[in-house]
Each structure stands twice: as C-alpha cells, then as structure tokens.
Design a protein around this nucleic acid. Sequence first.
DNA 1: GTAGCTTTTTGACTTTTGTCACACCTTCGT
DNA 2: ACGAAGGTGTGACAAAAGTCAAAAAGCTAC
Lengths: 188, 188
Amino acid sequence: MTFIREGIRDITQFDEPDLLLFQQALTGRQIGKGQFLMQPGDTCRHIHFLQTGLLRSFYLKEEEERTIAFSLENSFCTDLKSLRSGQPSEIAIQALEPSVLLSISKSDLIRLYQQSHQIEAFGRRLLETLLEEQEEYLSWFRLYSAKERYDFMLQKHPGLLQRISLGQLASYLGIRRETLSRIRGLRS
Amino acid sequence: MTFIREGIRDITQFDEPDLLLFQQALTGRQIGKGQFLMQPGDTCRHIHFLQTGLLRSFYLKEEEERTIAFSLENSFCTDLKSLRSGQPSEIAIQALEPSVLLSISKSDLIRLYQQSHQIEAFGRRLLETLLEEQEEYLSWFRLYSAKERYDFMLQKHPGLLQRISLGQLASYLGIRRETLSRIRGLRS
DNA sequence: GTAGCTTTTTGACTTTTGTCACACCTTCGT
DNA sequence: ACGAAGGTGTGACAAAAGTCAAAAAGCTAC
C-alpha cells in the first residue's frame, strides 16, 4: 500500500490531507490478459489509473478494430466522451497484459474536485498534458507519411513494440497490417 | 463593456468577484483580415478568447499550409504546446476575418488559477471540452474517408464553408485542394 | 469593362495504400 | 508430435489520393 501512495503522490503531488482524500476514493482492481474493461455500449463511469500492465482502447468498425490509444503504466485511461455525457460508449478498452488498476468514479471525482482546489488543479494539469499529447499524435496524421509515423512510434515508445501485435500497431498508425509489414520490409 | 461582461459570464459562469478578477486580467485587441496573431518561431504567451471574427491555426510544411483548427466566435485559441513549454511555436495563427479578441497572459492565468478555485474549475472544464472535441476530430481520420469527413464538416459547421477557402478546408480535412474539388463534384 | 490576380476545376499520370489470396511461422493445447 | 489458431509476410491487382499542368471561374482595382 505504501508504494501505491508513493506512485499516486509522485504523479499528483498532493499533500498529505488530499492524498488521503484521493486514496479513499480509489478502488483497486485486477484484470487478466485479453479481458475487457469496457465494451462498446457500456457507459463509462470511472477514470482508471494503470499501475502495471497495458491497456488498449479501440473502435470497432465493420469487424475491424481501430486502435485509438495504448495506455502504459502510470497513466490514466477512460472514455472521456461517454464519461462526460453519460451516454453509451463507442469504444472498447481491453487489457493486453494482466493489469492492476486503481479506479475512481465520476461522482467521487466531482466531489473531490469541489472539496479540494489542489485536486481540481491536478485534474486541470492532467487534462493539459493529455490534450498536448493528443495534439502531437494528431499532427502525425497531418504532417507525416505512414512510414514516418512508424518511425516516430519506434523513437517514442521503443519498448512498446515488443508488447503489442503488428496488427494493433498498424491500426494505431491508421494503416493496414499489410502496409505496415511492407514499411518494415524497407530496411534502409 | 457590459456585453463583454455578459459574454464572459455566460461562458465561464463566474460569480461577481471572480468575474471581476478575470476581467481585469483581460486585454482587448483587434486584428485585421489576413494578419497574424502569431508566426512559427514566436513563443505563445497568451490564451485568446475570440469575441467576433474567425481565426485559423496551421503548420507550414514545405511551403504548404496544413490547417489544424478554425476558431469561431466565443471560443478560445492558443498554442498549448508552446504556451506550456515556453518554447518557440511551430504553428501560425491568422485572422481570416477582422477579429476582436480578449487575451489573458499565461502568468496572469496561473495567478488566477491559484487565487480562485472557481477559475481553476473553469479551466479544467474548458480543457475537457477541448479534449473531447479533439478526440472527435481525430476519430474522423481513424474511421472515415475523405468524402465522409467532408460531409461531417458540412453537417457540423454548415455556415463555415462560406467563410473559408476550399484550399483551407482541404488542408483541414487532410487532403489536397484537387481531391476536395473532385469530392464536391460527385453530387450524388 | 477589363487587366491582373487568386481560387477552383479538370485531365492525364504517378504514388501510396487497400484488398484479397495464400504461404509461412509461431504458439499452445491435446 | 500433431493440428488448429493467430500473427506475419508477399504477390497481383484495385482503389484512393497526390502531382503537375492548364483551363475556367471569381474577385479586385483601376
């Protein structure tokens, strides 16, 4: 439990009272490889903090999985659209590895935001980071070719490739498995 | 000045004391059609609230403009990456129409965040909305063809087409002017 | 109106990526 | 060891989008 405190504290930089408040709202959960944290049609009611493991979020379009994100250790994962609207989600979240997560419900989070300015500030900073990351990812599609996007991925997450299938990576890069295979073939 | 108060109040939902605080940090500015709010290489130090007019943010890649956003009336505009890092920006922001904006500096905003929980909460909510919008926009590229993206644009911002050039729209949709022209030709 | 500019459209061609089919290789359970 | 299933690589072809060039259509300023 101590190491959980440390993990949360490092990320949030909460002081002792807020750390306690936050921690009390968290519920632990384990999930096996291949299992789903949520399926399309479910309504998302939590934000998950991934301690160990690996998650993948994806749309299902015509039997095809279109990956929108990989969530690594010490990062947060949710479906913001469904969480905010209360409407059914269009995405699935699946564990690619056995994963340990701490989850906080929407209602608890709203309560904590109101109770603590510091927690609200953390929420704001977290969102800024997420938005900036997503802007960068989006710029890949605006500015670069499939090959370049693949190279960026290698640079940015060199270890990740050993943990996911090429099909999953391809769908994250917005191309077909075969195209990715050909890109990788061009060893220049 | 009253109507500015109302506009800000509607959007932020600040109560009277915070409204005043916030308002004092805002500086007004007008900018003519075609003028630049910032250029690549500038460091972004403000968040701009657009009262009237139309802004466009874009990258410059090999003499080509790649539009990443149109900012409409009553919306916010900045370069989050440069604003947060303090590093030179890679994007340009240009007024497509004569525009009136209220701007707040990064340092003032940070100060206000610290002073007022309510203002911090507004910042968080705003970021949530921006992130959700961007997720939707990103899903266009994941799930839909160029033609479909064009149709969504028509649905979502029917009026905008009269205010921007087709070249600008094409670059926002991630295709060439010629391709957009052909898509529009297919009147089915 | 018309000259000069920009924007949009059209055409021929190239490049990139997708599609479909199938071979190859793991891995995993029996 | 065996076969099934899933993941990966390759080839031939199709579709989508990019490129380059030039014509047509819109604007703007005299």
